[in-house]
């Protein structure tokens, strides 16, 4: 059984001129221990998908349709208190800015121990031991002393390590990591990506890794989901999606990434920009920018369909080619 099942998820924001649909019918699963990368540009709905799963959508944003199941149990309609217990215990969360995830008034030790004792049946001493152990595991030097430190006394990289320790404190089955390395310097980014990879492998924790950085996905994820204008356009094994992307948007995206050693050339350019939520075109949302769009793309919306083993793309061209 899949650890997490997301089915036909719709997130919308009601406005006076009618609802804005920010996540539009997204479905995917995550297996135990699997890292699913979720990639897309700003406004594609990737962070909102993560927030909807952990029940932290900011009102007035709301889940308008679909459901989220964890270990077979529906969690999207739980009352806030029940959801709060699942967060932390079953699902850990890592956000982009470690400063906003940590309370500046408490030592990191106190925050860790509080999380540990909320979710696990341990006494104060055992919780302290576990907190020190976690800090050691995430690579914080001299954890016995650092446990007394306040967040502002640590560097950005060290803070993000503490946030990872917090997310893993109760041994959750799933971690939702939203741009965990974006705020960090490149050499620190590499350290944090390696750390996440190692810890999740050792603890068999599944990860939903939300990022705009295809490089981080390539190095970390087992499968990747590509979002465009709130819709899932491609989903598949990471090698397949990166080496042979099948959706024209993914193809454009891959070509637009500069690579070391490729000098002097021009980057592939997707003309235009992602549509605003109040102006999503009919049919395939990508058709006005798509070099291969034809009549059908302009009025009918393509659904994800198989283009390879465990690989789907939502594109009429692909279907046409598969039929031929």
């Amino acid at each position: 059984m899949a650890l997490l099942e997301v089915e036909d998820l719709v997130v919308e924001f009601p406005t006076r001129r009618g609802p804005l649909v920010a996540v539009d019918g997204v479905s995917f699963t995550i297996e135990p221990g699997e890292v699913l990368g979720m990639v897309g540009e700003s406004g594609a709905g990737k962070s909102l998908t993560g927030m909807a799963i952990i029940g932290l959508l900011e009102p007035p944003g709301r889940i308008a349709r679909g459901c989220v199941r964890l270990e077979g149990r529906r969690i999207d309609d739980l009352p806030p208190e029940a959801m709060r217990r699942i967060r932390g215990r079953k699902i850990g969360a890592i956000f982009q800015d470690p400063l906003t995830s940590l309370n500046p008034l408490y030592t990191i030790g106190r925050q860790l121990q509080e999380t540990i004792r909320t979710h696990l049946d341990l006494d104060a001493r055992a919780a302290r031991e576990r907190a020190i152990g976690l800090l050691r595991e995430v690579g914080i030097p001299a954890p016995e002393r650092r446990i007394e430190a306040y967040p502002h006394e640590l560097s950005g990289g060290m803070r993000q390590r503490v946030v990872i320790a917090l997310a893993l404190a109760a041994e959750p089955a799933l971690v939702v990591a939203d741009e965990p390395t974006t705020a960090l310097d490149v050499s620190i980014q590499a350290q944090i990506v390696q750390l996440l990879k190692r810890l999740c492998r050792e603890h068999r924790t599944a990860v939903l890794l939300v990022t705009h950085d295809m490089g981080v996905i390539a190095e970390t994820a087992d499968r990747v989901a590509v979002l465009y204008a709130g819709r899932l356009v491609e989903l598949g094994p990471v090698e397949a999606v990166i080496r042979r992307p099948r959706h024209p948007y993914t193809q454009g995206l891959m070509g637009a990434i500069p690579r070391i050693g490729v000098r002097g050339g021009r980057l592939v350019q997707i003309e235009g920009a992602m549509p605003r939520l109040d102006a999503i075109p009919p049919g395939c949302a990508f058709h006005p920018r798509c070099p291969r769009a034809f009549e059908r793309c302009r009025h009918a919306r393509p659904e994800p369909s198989a283009v390879g083993p465990g690989h789907t793309a939502a594109c009429w061209r692909r279907l046409e080619e598969a039929d031929a």
């Binding site: 560097s155 060290m158 490149v186 050499s187 590499a190 390696q194 390539a218 190095e219 690579r259």
Partner: peptide, 20 residues
């Protein structure tokens, strides 16, 4: 070494420890 590898060579990177 810190540049993520899009060519999927999946090398295990050993990022240099420490910060600026």
């Amino acid at each position: 070494d810190t540049v993520p590898d899009l060519e999927m060579r999946r090398r295990e990177r050993t990022p240099v420890a420490g910060e600026v």
